[in-house]
Simulated scan of single mutants.
Amino acid sequence: MDTSEVITRLLREHGRTYADEAGITLHDKPAPLYQLLVLTVLCSIRIRAETATAAARELFAAGLRTPRAMADSGWQERVDALGRAHYVRYDESTATALGDGAELLLDRFHGDLRRLREQAGGDTAELRGLLQEVPRIGPVGADIFCREVQAVWPELRPFFDERSRSAAADLGLPRTSSGLAELVPPEDLARLAAALVRVSLSKSATEELRAA
């Protein structure tokens, strides 16, 4: 299978972003950007991505789609929503982190992550640093957010973290972000990054692509 066929299969079979799986229609607007941040917080511990996206959907279904709604919600309400998605062991600490993070966002950025983007001034390292000031988000979480948000924040493109670059190398694709960016249109970069991460989490998917 040549490179173009690998890319076609990656996007077709694994190219759903995690934001889409969580029910987020991503736009450069305060609410969907915040929802992506919530998903990032949920993914920032050792837990299955399917559980994290399910937990995000439960929180959003409970009306917790904005920093104000999250900050005004009760801690137990957040715990209960996480519990419905079987987001266990970390439900109480995550409920606390979500509440604290919402307050931080309201205090520093008026609840609008576009202000955080402006403060970063197009500097990806600065943006990652600002994201890591949000409770629970560390370097891996910052990578998750940047991987997905490049769909609507073009200055981050191309963004492929170590996990996605390593998966690409395993499939015989370029290991560099710039090399991967040459393989798809800019609007597909977030999908390709997500596909590579999904494949890295599935030994069978990697083997199928290698064998094809």
Rank of each mutant, 00 (worst) to 15 (best):
105 L>S: 07
41 V>M: 15
125 A>K: 15
55 A>Y: 00
70 M>T: 10
40 T>K: 10
77 E>P: 00
19 A>C: 13
196 L>C: 04
204 S>H: 15
91 D>T: 10
107 D>K: 15
37 L>K: 02
149 V>A: 01
194 A>V: 04
163 R>H: 14
94 T>Q: 07
200 S>L: 04
50 E>D: 14
113 L>N: 01
88 V>E: 03
31 A>D: 06
141 G>A: 09
184 V>L: 02
145 F>W: 07
91 D>W: 09
114 R>L: 10
24 I>T: 07
99 G>N: 12
28 D>K: 11
209 L>W: 02
121 G>Y: 07
35 Q>N: 07
7 I>C: 11
202 S>F: 03
141 G>K: 07
104 L>K: 06
88 V>H: 02
199 V>G: 04
188 D>Q: 03
168 A>H: 00
114 R>Y: 05
181 A>Q: 09
127 L>M: 13
92 E>F: 10
160 F>H: 06
100 D>S: 12
94 T>N: 04
116 L>F: 11
163 R>M: 12
39 L>I: 09
107 D>P: 09
89 R>C: 14
181 A>Y: 08
142 A>Q: 07
48 R>G: 15
146 C>K: 04
109 F>I: 04
105 L>P: 00
18 Y>E: 08
92 E>R: 14
84 R>S: 09
158 P>D: 07
54 A>C: 10
121 G>M: 05
37 L>C: 03
211 A>P: 11
109 F>H: 06
193 A>Y: 09
75 W>P: 13
26 L>A: 02
139 P>M: 14
18 Y>P: 01
177 S>E: 13
20 D>K: 12
26 L>S: 06
82 L>N: 02
123 D>S: 09
174 P>V: 03
2 D>K: 14
71 A>G: 09
95 A>Q: 05
206 T>I: 14
85 A>I: 07
147 R>V: 03
38 V>D: 06
180 L>M: 08
37 L>V: 01
45 I>D: 08
151 A>N: 01
1 M>L: 15
155 E>W: 15
45 I>A: 12
165 R>E: 12
167 A>C: 13
180 L>A: 04
12 R>M: 04
184 V>D: 01
9 R>P: 03
116 L>R: 07
8 T>I: 00
182 E>T: 11
130 L>G: 03
81 A>V: 04
118 E>I: 06
143 D>E: 12
207 E>H: 12
38 V>H: 05
85 A>C: 14
165 R>W: 04
71 A>N: 10
6 V>S: 01
134 V>T: 11
166 S>R: 13
86 H>K: 14
14 H>T: 02
209 L>A: 03
124 T>A: 14
69 A>P: 01
49 A>S: 12
142 A>G: 13
14 H>M: 02
79 V>I: 10
78 R>P: 06
63 G>V: 10
10 L>A: 05
2 D>L: 00
80 D>W: 05
204 S>G: 03
130 L>W: 00
92 E>W: 00
168 A>M: 05
74 G>Q: 11
57 R>Q: 11
112 D>C: 13
144 I>H: 07
77 E>V: 11
153 W>Y: 10
14 H>V: 03
67 P>E: 03
155 E>S: 15
112 D>A: 11
37 L>R: 02
149 V>G: 00
84 R>W: 00
109 F>L: 05
75 W>L: 15
67 P>N: 03
42 L>K: 02
